[in-house]
Write a protein that binds this DNA or RNA. Structure first.
Length: 395
RNA sequence: GGCGGGGUAGCGAAGUGGUCAAACGCACCGGACUGUAAAUUCGGCCUCUCUGAGUUCGCAGGUUCGAAUCCUGCCCCCGCCA
């Protein structure tokens, strides 16, 4: 049975709204997936995440493999039990971590900057056909991860959705490199699926990952290759370009050739305008560090495109501001009456409560954006809703 | 009144003859952050006609080629003793 039930499609775009069924419950799509990289949505407890309207969280194979170890988590009964989250969990394969060990952040890589804190970075020792050798950032030991390893770890974690092991192709590489890397990712896909067929949990869905960089032919070829496989869902990964317009173009090339029936996940994307654009391009689920990370960095999401949907509450001008983050915000933080001035004070003083409140606010904001987009697809009003959100309507 | 310690850029605090416009922290200003080794990180932060120049290290003198650093006097502050 197909995991994704499509309830409605938007006549004016490729958007769909539906329900993605997993062993631990349904995901209302389109949906945002908060990151719980190391088995926690930083600062929040699972019940809070769910109460904000999120149906699923994302854990990370690479990090949980190094610490506390997938076998230990398995002894606890799997990742759901370990972290106390009963809902659906998707686990990322570790492919992105290979990227970030070599290049730092996405922005650093695109802009050609040396990653900051490079000394703390582990090291990719080599990437070859078989897999990836790297140095553990925990104890410096040499570790090995291959497609089979990643699937084995994800099987032990017991996630509902597993992502195949891929190489997240950087932006600053040649087309030739991207082509070869993408083909290798395709071969890794087969190995992941083979391993999963023999050893993987019956009820664990597997997503293939489309690569191809910013090259249309490579993207299309990759999308078709992934779609031709027996994976349950399809994720879009790798470099999506340096500018948003390019990103939308790349995503558009991809979703144009994907089979409609299977769920599509856009990896690592989650700024507000990107969510709107992504949904219109036919994406069902997104994950992104942005709302949680920005929250911990003192940034609160606001319905203001001119400010990139964010205000920096660490600024002194908010010290005496007794208003909410934005008027009418229904999130737990603002509904409780917390002021910008209070939040600024908390954040400046490194009070954990401040980081928690901003994380709650930001995740609530993103959840409402997704709910509105979903409802708009169901109502056939996505065009107007998209315009409103992009113009700064409060979700 | 005596003894001791101290006055350094918005604050705290290094520096104790030259490489000092002066470490470092805080505060402040600005930037970054999109499959999270991030409660992280980068830059600025005396003034200006600014890849150079000018004024600074309680105040005023002095020694010296050269002083935040040494000497003299003065003014404040802190501790202990009277």
């Amino acid at each position: 049975m197909a995991p994704l039930e499509i309830l409605a499609t938007d006549p004016g775009s490729r958007a769909r709204a539906g329900v993605l069924r997993t062993a631990h419950g349904d995901i209302r799509t389109p949906a945002f997936v908060p990151l719980a990289t190391k088995a926690t949505v930083r600062g929040l407890v699972p019940a809070e995440v769910a109460s904000l309207g999120h149906d699923i969280v994302l854990g990370n194979t690479f990090h949980l493999f190094l610490e506390p170890g997938h076998e230990r988590i398995a002894r606890f009964g799997g990742l759901h039990r370990f972290m106390g989250w009963d809902g659906p969990i998707v686990t990322d394969s570790g492919g992105f971590q290979v990227f970030s060990m070599g290049h730092g952040t996405v922005a650093d890589e695109i802009k050609g900057r040396a990653s900051h804190g490079a000394e703390r970075h582990g090291k990719v020792l080599r990437i070859d056909e078989d897999g990836v050798a790297f140095r553990s950032y925990i104890d410096g030991s040499e570790q090995w991860m291959a497609p089979e390893t990643s699937m084995e770890i994800q099987a032990a974690l017991g996630s509902d959705l597993a992502l195949v092991f891929d190489e997240c192709t950087p932006f600053n590489v040649t087309r030739e490199y991207t082509a070869r890397s993408t083909q290798r990712t395709h071969r890794w896909l087969d190995r992941c699926l083979d391993w999963h067929d023999r050893h993987g949990p019956e009820d664990q869905l597997v997503y293939g990952i489309v690569q191809g960089g910013v090259h249309q032919d490579l993207r299309v070829e990759s999308a078709e290759t992934i779609a031709a496989s027996r994976c349950d869902g399809i994720a879009i990964g790798g470099s999506l370009g340096a500018e948003k317009d390019q990103m939308y173009e790349v995503v558009g090339w991809t979703t144009a050739v994907l089979p409609p029936a299977r769920p599509r996940h856009l990896l690592g994307i989650g700024e507000i305008d990107d969510l709107v654009a992504g949904v219109r391009l036919g994406i069902d689920t997104f994950d992104c560090a942005m709302p949680t990370r920005l929250g911990r960095h003192g940034m609160a999401l606001v319905p203001d495109p001119g400010r990139r949907w964010r205000i920096d509450l660490t600024a002194a001008r908010y010290a005496d501001d007794d208003g909410p983050i934005f008027d009418g915000c229904p999130c737990p933080c603002c509904a409780a009456g917390h002021t910008r001035g209070y939040l600024r004070y908390l954040v400046k003083n490194k009070e954990l409560t401040g980081l928690r409140l901003l994380t709650l606010h930001n995740l609530a904001f993103v959840a409402r954006v997704m709910q509105r987009l979903r409802q708009a697809v169901l109502d056939g009003t996505l065009g107007a809703e998209s315009e409103a959100l992009l113009a700064g309507a409060a979700p």
